[in-house]
Simulated scan of single mutants.
Amino acid sequence: MKGLILNDKNPSKIEVREVELPELKDDEVLVEVKAAALNHRDQWCREGRYPNIRNGVVLGSDGAGVVSKVGKNVDSKWLETEVVINSAMNWGEDQKAQSKDFEILGMPSHGTFAQYVIVKADRLHEKPEHFNWEQAGALPLGGLTAYRAVFFHGKVEKGQKVLVTGFGGGVAQYAAQFAIAAGGEVYVSSGHDQKIEVAKKQGAKGGFNYKEEAWTEQAKKETGGFDLVIDSAVGDTWGKLLKVMNPGAKLVFYGATLGNPKELDMRRVFWNQLTIQGSTMGSDADFKEMLAFVQEKQILPVIDKVYKLEEAVEAFDRMKAGDQIGKIVISMD
């Protein structure tokens, strides 16, 4: 089969080539991949910035397709079923945090940027009926991460003022949609006015361009402050985020793309009774709840652009540039 592998000897660090999958184990299934989507971890693997990376591994965590073969201990009902794949593996029994064996599909195990992928049967869920293949392939990792941040940790409530930073990326667009569907008064921040306009069309109350020096003053004046902030950047942006948070508010962050903050006003944190909460992808329970919520609210992933497998380098470069609004998808058809 054809697959997109990591190869640090190649100038682009990735290449499409023939890949041989291992034998199917008794508790596994073979899925014919219809669509898969990029996540930042794929680009970080390409750049050598992710742990336990190795050449020859098929990248890709998000994916959806049709089950074409099942192991002998797997219920045959799954054959020919249209599925989405939960790429979070070995979460463990503790809902509060992942186990030491937690792993994400696509590195170090073969992922979804291929014509076929092998996963354990317990990673399968039926594809939401209102999704096409590109939407289904774009949901799993980003949707799960956003759901845990907004609901399990953020505990969003109707009428709360919510700020989702960095709108345009996959997780952020899900976080905004989820919080809007839950009845929150949602605002976004972005470095691109075009992305803010997209968020407004989805139901956001407004947005702020964080490249503008006085955006925090504008946000405070317009909203009165936020009860919940969902962030993935950290870095020195946190000093400004703390200033727009109401007393008793919570900041949930699921990444640190800008690194650690040089300074953090801890006096503001304790005096205003603020909570800072880390989050990651979620548990199996989170995934089931996320799927049910998506189907109940008829939420549709925002698709930025669809590429063919042979165009993967172009797709990765688009993610690296940060130009996307929503998910970048690779179609196998």
Rank of each mutant, 00 (worst) to 15 (best):
K2I: 13
G3V: 07
N7V: 00
N10H: 12
P11M: 09
I14M: 06
E15Q: 15
E15G: 10
D26L: 13
D26W: 09
D26C: 13
N39M: 03
H40M: 14
D42T: 03
Q43Y: 11
R49Q: 14
S76Y: 10
S87H: 04
A88T: 06
G111K: 00
T112F: 04
D122H: 12
E126M: 14
F131Y: 09
A136D: 09
G137I: 09
G142R: 00
T145V: 06
A146D: 08
H153K: 15
Q160G: 08
K161Q: 13
F167D: 01
V171M: 03
Y174G: 04
A176Y: 05
A182G: 04
G184C: 13
G184S: 07
E185K: 11
V186N: 05
V188E: 04
S190R: 08
H192M: 14
Q194T: 12
V198H: 07
A199E: 01
E213K: 12
A214R: 07
T216N: 01
T216A: 08
E217A: 15
G225L: 12
F226M: 09
D227M: 12
I230P: 03
G239A: 00
K240E: 13
V244R: 03
P247Q: 00
G248M: 14
G255S: 02
A256C: 00
L258Y: 01
N260R: 13
N260F: 13
M266I: 13
F270Q: 07
N272D: 14
G278F: 11
S279I: 14
S283V: 14
Q295L: 15
V302D: 05
V302S: 06
D304P: 12
A315C: 06
D323K: 15
Q324T: 11
I330L: 04
S331V: 12
